[in-house]
Design a protein around this nucleic acid. Sequence first.
DNA 1: ATTTAATAGGACATTTTTATCCGATTTAAT
DNA 2: ATTAAATCGGATAAAAATGTCCTATTAAAT
Lengths: 144, 144
Amino acid sequence: MFSKACEYGIRAATYIASQSKLSRRVSLKEIADEIDSPVAFTAKILQQLSRNKIIDSVKGASGGFEISRSQIDHIKLSQIVYAIDGNNVYVGCGLGLKKCNASKPCPVHDKFVQIREDLKNMLENTSLDEMTTGLEVGLTYLKR
Amino acid sequence: MFSKACEYGIRAATYIASQSKLSRRVSLKEIADEIDSPVAFTAKILQQLSRNKIIDSVKGASGGFEISRSQIDHIKLSQIVYAIDGNNVYVGCGLGLKKCNASKPCPVHDKFVQIREDLKNMLENTSLDEMTTGLEVGLTYLKR
DNA sequence: ATTTAATAGGACATTTTTATCCGATTTAAT
DNA sequence: ATTAAATCGGATAAAAATGTCCTATTAAAT
Ligand code: FES
Ligand code: FES
């Protein structure tokens, strides 16, 4: 569904958001540990998210990653997925045809578009804040 | 969503089914041409489908690939996806946690499982025969 | 000023996926 | 029997995704 990079990206952003809500800036190492991801690879993904203004990075001693309260409320999963995996999940054909388009559809077009739209709507309607609510009370997890 | 191999596999099986309904056995070359896929790679995928009893292969001169009428009616997309991509699309966590399980769910579990189940149901309820119906009348396509 | 702890980013390595090549085998037709 | 047309299967190659390493840069603390 999503690339590994994207999965790590969502988990990382969610963890950063959860800690930012507690006014804790977090380090790369802590993030990788908390989401069970490879440290150096996670660093690359955090850079991408930072360049895309999804998270904030602070360099130097006592630096780390954080997300502002307003961003926590406004950033949706769809933006993270788009920043890392691009738009294929939103517009690509389920059978890999060069274009997905109702004027020359593949045999699963109608059924697939429904599912793709459901996924798109889910991602567009899920904020980082919503991602953190279960975490805070121990109902959901970022590793297992 | 699906691997390239799986996309080619579905398209190939659909094309073979459509021609088998016309009592035409088709060659690897013709299949690759009709679904716009790399010939040698497609050969590997057809072997997989053949070993999994999803299509029949006939060796030797005038050989090729075909699907029996009863198989066309009862093979579902889910079986093709499973044969090539395994079961991750049916049971995997959307955020890549090692296991997806309601007892220790990731933050998107509930929403993701819904979409995953919709996709699963769609694949389980779409037969190869249904895949071919639009093709036959020029309403759907396997390349563009 | 120096040290220390952190991210940034380029280069490199490994693994997986995608794709190609070629000889072996099978079967129909001659 | 020989030839031709086809799949089978192993080896290899190329590309993409995933992962690692190292140096530069930044900024706080001393
Ligand atoms: S053309 Fe295949 S999903 Fe739209
Ligand atoms: S635990 Fe992530 S989708 Fe179920």
